[in-house]
Design a protein around this nucleic acid. Structure first.
Ligand SMILES: [Mn+2]
Ligand SMILES: [Mn+2]
Ligand SMILES: [Mn+2]
Ligand SMILES: [Mn+2]
Lengths: 152, 152
DNA sequence: AAAAATAATTAGCCTAACCTAATTTTTTGT
DNA sequence: ACAAAAAATTAGGTTAGGCTAATTATTTTT
C-alpha cells in the first residue's frame, strides 16, 4: 500500500480481467485486454500506464506487463468478490447473461459487511434446496403473471 | 417515453431524491436537493435543466419544479427498488450506514430479473426467522475471527 | 532481408458530472 | 419600499474514462 487507496470501478475491471487473462492464456497483451473488455487499444494503453504508476502492474512500453504483488492481491480479491456474487445469483436462478451483466456493475459497490452477509446467506441457502426451489418457483409465477408495475 | 430511454445513475439519484423531498416536505427546491445530495446548487440547476429537457420534470427558471407523470412513475420505481434492497439487507443484518451506502451504488445496476429473484428470496426469508438467526450468527463469528484475507 | 501484417503508442477530442466564483432573481425583515 | 439575505443561474473550469486517426514498433511471412 504505497499511496492512493480507493480504486475506481474501471481500475477494478481492468485488474480483474488482466488476472483472468494471465490465468487462462498465460499473458495479457493490450490487444487481448481491449478485446476482452470491448474497449479500444488506445484506452487500454492509457489505463496500463496508470496502473503502472499506481503500482498495480509493472509495465514496459511495447514489452508487456506483469501484475505486481500488490496488484495481484487486489485482483484476486476482486475476482473472489465476483465469484461470490455469481454463486449467490446462480443459486437464486438469475439467468446467466443478465446475472453477469448485473454483477459487473454491482461488484464495485459492496462493502465487506455486505459481502460477508451474502456469503453467510449463500452458505446457508446451499443447505436448503427446498427453499431454493420455492424461491425459483415464485419468480416464474410472478414473471408470467404481471410483467412489471401495478398493485397500488 | 419521448426519446432516450436508459437513465444514468446520477439521473436516478436525482429523481429519487426529488420524489422523497416532495413527499416529506411538499416541495423540492434547488437548495434542498443540493443539501440532500451534498452537491453544489450549480450542479443541481444544471441537472434540473436536463431532467426538464428529458421530460422527467417541468421546470421553470427560478420558479421551481414538478415531476411529470412519467418522471414520477420512474421515481417511484427507483424508490421501490431501493426499498426492496433495504428490506433485504436489513434482514441479513447489515449495519444501516454501510447498508444505505452500498445500496446507493448497487441499485443502479440491477435488472428486473435480479430484483425479482431478490424479492422472492426476501419474502421467503421472512418466513424463516431461525434461518436468519443462523446467518447473522455466522457473520459475527467470521467477523471476530479473521478480519480479512488468508485461508489459501 | 524486405514487405506486410499486427500490435502498441501518441495526439487530440468528447461527454458526464461534478466544482467555484460571479451574477441575477426572489424573498424577507425593517 | 428598500436593503439585506437567500436562492438560483451562468460562466468557466476539472477529471475520469472513453473514442478515432495517425504514427511507431514488433512480429510474421514471403
Ligand atoms: Mn465490474
Ligand atoms: Mn467482475
Ligand atoms: Mn443511488
Ligand atoms: Mn437510492
Amino acid at each position: 500500500m504505497t499511496a492512493s487507496s480507493r480504486s475506481s470501478a474501471a481500475v477494478e475491471d481492468y485488474l480483474e480481467r488482466i488476472l483472468e487473462l494471465m490465468t487462462t492464456k498465460g499473458y495479457a497483451r493490450v490487444v487481448d485486454i481491449a478485446a476482452s473488455l470491448q474497449i479500444s487499444q488506445a484506452s487500454v494503453t492509457n489505463m496500463l500506464q496508470r496502473l503502472d504508476a499506481e503500482g498495480f502492474i509493472n509495465y514496459e512500453k511495447y514489452r508487456g506487463l506483469m501484475l505486481t504483488e500488490s496488484g495481484e492481491a487486489v485482483a484476486r480479491a476482486i475476482a473472489q468478490r465476483h465469484e461470490l456474487l455469481t454463486d449467490f445469483l446462480t443459486l437464486l436462478g438469475v439467468p446467466s447473461e443478465v446475472r453477469e451483466h448485473d454483477i459487473e456493475g454491482i461488484e464495485h459497490h459492496m462493502s465487506p459487511s455486505t459481502l460477508l452477509a451474502i456469503e453467510s446467506l449463500t452458505m446457508e441457502l446451499k443447505k436448503h434446496p427446498m427453499l431454493l426451489k420455492k424461491i425459483q418457483g415464485a419468480q416464474k409465477k410472478r414473471r408470467s403473471r404481471g410483467p412489471l408495475r401495478s398493485e397500488e
